[in-house]
Design a protein around this nucleic acid. Structure first.
Length: 597
RNA sequence: GGCUCUGUAGCUCAACUGGAUAGAGCAUCGCACUACGGAUGCGAAGGUUUGGGGUUCGAAUCCCUACAGGGUCACCA
């Protein structure tokens, strides 16, 4: 959809078709698309779907419709027919009017805030024992970007994450730190808190495996050896003490979690993401229990002899699923049921929620949503799993055991360093202060990484090769930033602003100018599509196409140097709109546009 | 094995949701310009859209089938 033109064209086709053939087509039969470059014209009507109703072969109907449209609309200057495609040429006035209208509208591409419903987006939600890695970067950038896109589309968005701060795995790092830590703290070692805790989680695993190996060597079978491991027994004991509220354990738990949160916050800050509300499992894990027990009382679930509670999903083509252990303790599903219901209670106006979680949990969410439905939960249909593919390395999946994990902090740093060295080499910002240089390296380096991860459709798993580092040229954020900086420079030098630009609507626009206009005017519709499909890659690709068209246009079209006054103003108008469109689009991906680079 | 996602140029990805001769970037080769900002532009080469069938005016897209790869089917999270 080209803003300001296609809606009018759509209406004109309906009216003209009815006047010509005596019947009115359905809206969905009107297909308008951009005319391919090899043909004459601006917009193309696909006539095949209308031929039957017109009672004529497609090219005959197209010809008749073209005649009638050109006569009826003074803004259509001509037409030609190729097979069933009706190519329509629009007048300069039509294009100029649409561009000028766009210039007067604020915040191009954004629908009015609050014009749509309230939506919750959950993302990040990491395991607190493991420092953030490349996969988390994709998750965070995706969740944050989808939030921004939904906002731009007019939704009121609440960004949340659930922090997985309880359970046996947390106790593992606590036990290891107690036994091996010798009082180390982030302050004493200078290590980031999440890295420090992660190190002890690994240390636990190593010690545990050694104990199991020893047990096996002494003749136990592997399962017995695991159960006999003193380390594991200590962790279990600690979990019990934690659940009982033991002061000493809770104090240690708070301290170590505090270290992790401090470390994560630093990484979130670097990533440029944020949250409106945090949920902690330690607060919510008991909530699901009462819903499960209610479900049992209502006969939706059933109980086994050991007291465990299950749901039977075999009628839905799935299995039986455990909801509550025999000893009454919660499992993952239990607390997800509780949390889902809690969120709708916390936000009474909430229309739906979106879970940004990797595709390995598709089964889990399918089951969760089904259970909510069986429980008769009113908003059971209002949940969506935004599933995304893994980031793979050339050797396959990331494996912490094999040391192939790409650490988020390390990668972000490397991106900043690369951006900095390119920038220093080019020497265009030698007059910048050190702080400004650091900021620029962050905008460019992090921008390149975000764009790299977001330009791929979420559903696809994607390849990341650490050896061939992320590009700064070609289809990349730095290329886009460079061209926006160029636009800004031209506008700065001429003093042109969107409010001062004005030109005669009869000013001729050539193919390149019309192509730019189409890219600009198509943007609001792309934002809506991206919001509807939770897909930032649509925004990325649209912005890239537009800025590439501008870069090509710039090469052989003088802008500030153009001598014809009206043409100059029109080109400045296009330049301002390209800059605004692309800047707004990149902001929806969490990517900043510098003033200079 | 069941369910599910994916398969497009040497590589990494697009393709307006069924539309015209499947497009970009990287890599390779060539050309242009002391550039209103060169982190540039233009061109060449590169494709039986994994194979086979079907649906129709029209298929990378929908259906069937075979093959290949990922995910999942835990009293883990």
């Amino acid at each position: 959809m080209i803003h300001g033109i296609d809606a009018r064209l759509h209406q004109a086709v309906l009216d003209t078709f009815e006047a010509t053939f005596g019947k009115r087509p359905a809206d969905r039969q009107i297909q308008i698309q951009t005319t391919r470059a090899e043909f004459e014209g601006d917009r193309t009507l696909v006539v095949f779907p209308l031929a039957g109703m017109a009672g004529a072969p497609p090219h005959v109907a197209a010809d008749a419709l073209g005649q009638a449209l050109t006569e009826a609309c003074d803004w259509i200057s001509g037409f030609n027919v190729v097979k069933g495609f009706l190519n329509l040429s629009l007048t300069d006035a039509c294009w100029n009017a649409a561009i000028q209208e766009a210039l007067t509208l604020p915040n191009w591409g954004h629908a009015p805030t609050g014009s749509k419903s309230q939506v919750m987006v959950e993302y990040s939600s990491p395991n607190t024992n493991k420092p953030l890695h490349l996969g988390h970067l994709r998750n965070n950038f995706l969740g944050y970007s989808v939030s921004r896109i939904l906002e731009a589309a007019g939704h009121d968005v609440k960004k949340v994450q659930i922090i997985n701060d309880r359970g046996i795995h947390i106790c593992k790092s606590m036990v290891a730190w107690q036994k091996l830590g010798q009082g180390e703290t982030p302050a004493s070692t200078g290590e980031k808190g999440d890295k420090l805790v992660g190190r002890y989680y690994v240390a636990f695993d190593k010690a545990f495996k050694a104990e199991v190996a020893e047990g096996v060597a002494n003749g136990l079978d592997p399962k017995e050896a695991e159960a006999a491991s003193p380390m594991l027994q200590e962790a279990r004991t600690m979990l019990q003490r934690w659940e009982e509220g033991d002061e000493e354990v809770v104090a240690l738990w708070k301290t170590m979690n505090g270290w992790v949160y401090e470390g994560f916050d630093a990484t979130y800050n670097a990533m440029g993401v944020s949250f409106d509300k945090l949920y902690y499992e330690s607060d919510t894990y008991l909530l699901g229990k009462k819903h499960v027990e209610q479900g049992l009382a209502d006969g939706v679930f059933f109980q086994k002899e050991d007291g465990s509670i299950w749901v039977d999903l075999t009628d839905d083509g799935l299995d039986e699923k455990l909801l509550l252990r025999g000893d009454g303790t919660a499992v993952y599903m239990t607390q997800d049921i509780g949390t889902a219901i809690l969120r709708f209670a916390d936000f009474p106006d909430l229309d739906r929620q979106v879970y940004t979680v990797g595709n390995e949990q598709e089964y889990h969410f399918k089951v969760l949503f089904l259970i909510l439905k069986k429980l008769g939960f009113a908003q059971a249909e209002a949940n969506h799993h935004l599933s995304y593919g893994m980031v793979e390395l050339p050797e396959g999946k990331m494996k912490s055991r094999e040391g192939t994990v790409v650490d988020a902090d390390d990668l972000l740093l490397e991106m900043r360093n690369t951006a900095r060295s390119i920038s220093d080499e080019l020497g265009k910002v030698d007059d910048f202060s050190e702080d400004d240089k650091v900021q620029l390296a962050t905008q460019v380096g992090h921008g390149a990484l975000k764009y790299f991860l977001l330009k791929v459709a979420p559903a696809k798993s994607m390849m990341f090769d650490p050896k061939s580092s992320i590009d700064f040229f070609g289809n990349t954020a730095p290329f886009i930033q460079f061209n926006v900086v160029r636009c800004k420079s031209i506008l700065r030098n001429t003093g042109a602003t969107t409010s001062t630009l004005t030109w005669d609507q009869a000013t001729p626009l050539d193919a390149a100018e019309r192509h730019l206009a189409a890219g600009i005017l198509g943007f609001p519709d792309v934002v809506q599509e991206a919001a509807a499909s939770y897909d930032p890659s649509l925004i990325a690709n649209h912005c890239y196409d537009l800025i590439k068209a501008f870069s090509s246009f710039y090469q052989d079209h003088p802008i500030a140097k153009e001598e014809d006054a009206a043409t100059r103003e029109a080109r400045l108008g296009l330049t301002a709109l390209v800059s605004e469109t692309v800047s707004n689009g990149m902001a929806m991906l969490g990517i900043d546009m510098p003033e200079r680079m």
